[in-house]
Design a protein around this nucleic acid. Structure first.
Lengths: 340, 340
DNA sequence: CTGAAAGCGCTTACAG
DNA sequence: CTGAAAGCGCTTACAG
């Protein structure tokens, strides 16, 4: 077994210089059609592939994007939020389509971020995706920004011009879901999910919820908001609290599908019928949402589009352009968890 | 803004040669403690990161693994099998723990594989993960093997010594699930899933199913096996076929959880009670399996362990060792879909 | 259209 | 323990 072919081997066989080989393989217009074809044929024959380390070193670009998925360290290892997993899928595809490779890395928010993919020249830019306490997270964003790292993030707008975000219109989405419940005749809608600056996306959804209640002349009852993070167990716990406090409510708005699904489980275990006694809506439209019984009415975040926009914006940044923060609409997916 | 620091900048500031800087940063024992500390302090101060392109080019290794996730091209873009997604999670973690970066790429089986990560020196080896028609797939495996590419794959053993696989004991898992149904008093167990060489893992599960039936003096009825691929809709369709043919059955073994979940939906839509009239089991133990109502009894494939073994075996291969194909046990997860 | 040459930023054998 | 030098395999300005 011989070692891998280099451009010199091809040059030798083709009877041209190595520079010409390099040009031919990159389809440079500077090279004669015939020469190019001959070189490419030989390259193919030898199963030659350009050494990316050498070419990246020379050109100072890697054509690679790094995806940093960070999670709340309290989470179980195996419990990756399916919403982000689906985002990962669409980002992978979007990268492939644009000719970029994708490095994936899971971060624990507690650690120092392993965010040096760009510094080490392994990637031309970063996509940040995740959940967890936003307050901790913001410092890191600022630091990255100061180091002139190219990055875009998924999430609520952070009111910093230098930081490019892509996110859903959580305020309107929250409004939309709450209004749907109200139109179904529900008057006492509980909100399950954190509603603080630590979780800005949930907070926006909560604000939308409050606006919808107010617009429909319903009062916002603080005891109907129970904190929960985006895992099923947490939604379950929050709903149990609600039930055990003997509060009166006829609908639950889970700040994410996982929360809503946990809440449904709690309701069912307590013999409370969904949707007859309590209607439930979620947020995200993860795949599971259509498999639950009843199937969950929710606000769809278009992960395919989101992945594309994240990648497009990052590539624009890398090219020195100035993409702006993007807000995407959510879509009401009506299923069976609110009655017919 | 000045350009990125190189090892020469550090050498200049530290008053040593660039070679010494390189040694100091790699913690070479050849360098004086004091010198090393000084160099490292300056590196830190300048936020210096070793250029991976340069070092990989020089050392001829990238400390990167590429994960190729291939899918059946008939699948909807957004429908990535959650089982593989969870595997992806554990592989990511296992890589990080071993000091490898991870490149992720989705392949369409129809295309030529973009499997040149190793040839282009972007990765030291490949992990293959996926589903789809195995017959098409096998040619590619052989080709990779002939090119001396370092790779390991998830799946049933392929009886080729040169190809290292990691997979679950599908034969025993299939036996286990079927026996569980039989012990619950079920006599007419249907199997939903392909049972051909095109889907070797399903085939093994089917063989386990047949063995269990035979061992318990039940006959294998070919009309109770209906083809299905691992998506919910396909399981739904298969169960509908079964129902509409008016066949008598009191249990369904879905070759994967997604199939089983689709089957449960079909049963429920036809007013057939699970588990009272028909018990259902799946295979995989994806997260959704515990959220369905009733929660799905299934065979757990330990994705965390699987990810670690895949990564360990691949690293062994890269180091020139000879890891062997590994068969992992499945675990019966009893939930509510088979009655109490 | 083509070739000779410089240089990307490291690592490491060699010499001291 | 340290330094000068070679070389990993490309890309591209420069000269023709």
């Amino acid at each position: 077994m011989m070692s891998k072919a280099t451009s010199f081997d091809i040059a030798f066989r083709a009877g041209v210089s190595q520079s010409t080989v390099s040009r031919a393989l990159r389809n440079s217009p500077l090279v004669n059609e015939e020469t190019r074809l001959k070189v490419q044929a030989i390259a193919h024959e030898l199963n030659y592939k350009v050494d990316k380390n050498a070419s990246s070193l020379r050109t100072q670009q890697s054509d690679t994007i790094a995806l940093l998925l960070f999670e709340d360290p309290t989470n179980d290892d195996s419990l990756i939020n399916p919403f982000f997993l689906s985002m990962l899928g669409s980002i992978t595809r979007a990268c492939a389509q644009k000719g970029y490779d994708l490095l994936v890395s899971f971060q624990q928010l507690s650690d120092d971020w392993h965010a040096d993919f760009e510094d080490s020249k392994k990637a031309d830019g970063l996509i940040l995706l995740g959940y967890g306490d936003f307050v901790d997270y913001q410092d890191t964003l600022t630091k990255l920004s100061e180091q002139h790292t190219h990055f875009v993030r998924w999430g609520a707008d952070v009111a910093d011009e230098k930081i490019v975000s892509v996110g859903c219109d959580n305020l309107h989405g929250g409004y939309q879901m709450t209004e749907h419940l109200i139109k179904k005749g529900r008057k006492n809608v509980a909100f399950l999910g954190d509603a603080s600056t630590h979780a800005p996306e949930f907070l926006e959804r909560y604000n939308g919820y409050c606006n919808a209640l107010t617009d429909h002349k319903l009062s916002v009852l603080s005891e109907l908001q129970v904190d929960a993070i985006s895992i099923e167990e947490s939604g379950y716990q929050a709903a149990c609290q609600l039930i055990e406090k003997n509060l009166s409510f006829d609908a639950i708005f889970g700040a994410s599908d996982l929360i809503a699904i946990g809440a449904m489980r709690a309701l069912q275990e307590h013999g409370i019928k969904v949707p007859e006694q309590v209607a439930v809506v979620g947020f995200d439209d993860i795949a599971v949402a259509s498999y639950t019984i009843p199937a969950l009415t929710t606000a769809k975040q278009d992960t395919t589009l989101a992945g594309e926009v994240l990648v497009d914006n990052l590539i624009a940044l890398i090219h020195g352009e100035n993409p702006t923060t993007t807000l995407m609409p959510t879509k009401l997916m009506v299923r069976n968890s609110c009655g017919s």
